[in-house]
Design a protein around this nucleic acid. Structure first.
Lengths: 345, 345
DNA sequence: CTGAAAGCGCTTACAG
DNA sequence: CTGAAAGCGCTTACAG
């Protein structure tokens, strides 16, 4: 009834507990004869090592924490799937830390470091740029961190990362809008404190500048990364003195709110206003109209981030000689039906 | 640099490690004078207890696992938010186990039990009914389990649970459709092996029976709990010899696919076909047309499930005297614009 | 109120 | 190849 420990297995097999331990951890160091004996004893007793004792002894939990702004976002759901694929393959469990305000502070990370409850951290959310010096000084040396999905604050560039080229992708998306004849293009982006979407804003601005198109004051609005926020943001755009003919939302989630706000105002997409999304989540194709957007290999990002973290963990807190260059994965512009030439053309 | 242990704190404070430990765990058993001394030493050294050692020693991890079919579903996202609220308040971390096939087997649970990596389990997914005897015999006595969101298989009724009255809610939803004059009503539900949606199907059938309405063969289709699956299911409904005038989807997620399939076929909602959802996720109100649905207090369900689990954990694996009655929370029918009287009325 | 000591279940040099 | 032993960092009866 009560759980069996290594001692009982050892007794039954007639060996020492050290040998039982070796059978499980480095079987090649044990003779075949005893290995079989021990294996039988394990089967017979139904022994499973006490994970808690192992973690304690080894100083490893085989748990990693992923920090992200919202698990509910369909895009992150896919990234999570990739992370879990890789984690399962490597015997890791995942603890999710959903950050309320799209940022996580260095202090919070430091707290995780000392608590030792996780072997590493995947940052899918941006981190508050404040206080990261602290982080790198004390913590980084001891807790592996890998960043996913977005090139983040320069303070974080010291960590390995996996993501698409967000600047280039946003430029491409904006460029497509321009190629369709749009000149009045607005941006619905994340909040100012969120870095999650900063590169996309940067790419948008770059494309507009290169095309010598003006961005009116009030055309770059915070959609708060949420449906609700995007509805508010879009309304302000519709009421703008210079109403844009196209709106680029830096996430599909916000594009959903944007579409709704436009249609609720009695306008139609794309006849009156064109909409571009970003992420190509599972809802994009079933929107009305189906959403043009940028597709990211979300599952692959998740897998690569996790494998990257495994490498960091395996090579120990030791040498800082690991490759820090970001791993770039390809994006793709997906054209559906939410974009048309502007009405005044 | 290297992390500080309880020993160093004890030395600095000039007390035994036992006293330091008491200061942290039962401060009332320590004189004020020494408590202050120790507190200073803790601050000075920056000591934090090694969670791994604590877990091992106490036989508790302060981690609970939640098992669910998909974190990506906006409904579960809300339930998760509630769970996390409560977990944070109680000092628990959450490990998420997304089950690939909407079920989790007793064996998988048993494996978690012996691994001791979690203090308890929240089941938001249904469990395979097979082999649950094993579960109750060995495992239940040692690993607290609470079930959320759906009354599940009778095998699971021995576990505490928190959910709405799914049968009544589905009856109400179906009844509303009937009250609008619909007689040809179809159901898009979860897969046969998923229990997640069974009660809703049951309620649907009961309402139809009571109204003496016939359910044609092929009117109850598996939408696989996904957008894609619902699209396929809806197409088969549209091609049905007796095309239904209304479709009840047992989750909003499937309703999204359903709406898309209907509109893609050149029909309109609700003029040609009415659609009813279930869950009232954040997308329901921004669908085109806005979706009538059943609202569940998702966050509250999550919170109550977690608090319930805490109670189970606290009262130990000891007495089985805990209240096993399901906790019912209220649902609400939300009328929006996806339902109208049938065209032939 | 406090300390010395046992022990939680493993893993891993260290001898042999 | 195998065993005896130390030790990971805590917590908690048990004495005093």
């Amino acid at each position: 009834m009560t759980t069996v420990s290594i001692k009982e297995v050892a007794e039954l097999a007639g060996v020492s507990i050290a040998t039982v331990s070796r059978c499980m951890n480095s079987p090649d160091k044990v003779s075949e004869k005893t290995r079989i004996k021990v294996q039988h004893a394990i089967l017979e007793t139904g022994y499973t090592p006490n994970t808690l004792a192992q973690s304690f002894r080894r100083g490893r939990t085989n748990i990693v924490m992923v920090v992200l702004p919202s698990i509910g976002d369909p895009f992150f759901t896919l990234v999570m799937r990739g992370i879990r694929n890789a984690a399962d393959a490597r015997g890791f469990s995942i603890i999710i830390n959903e950050t309320q305000f799209n940022t996580i502070t260095a202090d919070e990370i430091a707290a995780m470091v000392v608590s030792r409850q996780t072997d590493g951290i995947i940052l899918l959310a941006s981190m508050s740029p404040f206080g990261t010096e602290v982080l790198s000084e004390q913590s980084h040396r001891t807790l592996p961190i890998v960043v996913g999905c977005e090139t983040v604050a320069p303070e974080l560039s010291k960590f390995p990362s996996v993501h698409i080229d967000n600047v280039a992708a946003a430029k491409e998306a904006t460029g497509y809008l321009i190629s369709q004849g749009h000149e009045r293009i607005a941006l619905v982006c994340g909040s100012a404190t969120s870095l999650l979407t900063k590169d996309r804003e940067f790419g948008f601005r770059a494309a507009m500048r290169e095309a010598q198109l003006k961005i009116e004051l009030g055309w770059v609005v915070n959609g708060d990364l949420s449906v609700e926020g995007a509805i508010r943001a879009t309304r302000s755009l519709l009421n703008h003195r210079h109403r844009p003919s196209a709106i680029f939302c830096t996430t599909d989630e916000m594009a959903i709110g944007c579409l709704h706000a436009i249609k609720s105002a009695g306008l139609s997409v794309p006849t009156d206003i064109s909409v571009m999304g970003f992420d190509d989540t599972r809802y994009a194709a079933v929107m009305d109209p189906p959403l043009s957007t940028i597709s990211q290999p979300a599952v692959e990002i998740g897998e690569r981030v996790m494998y990257r973290l495994c490498r960091e963990i395996d090579q120990g807190r030791g040498a800082g000689n690991s490759e820090k260059k970001p791993e770039l994965v390809p994006h793709r512009l997906i054209i559906r039906e939410s974009i048309a030439p502007p009405a005044d053309l």
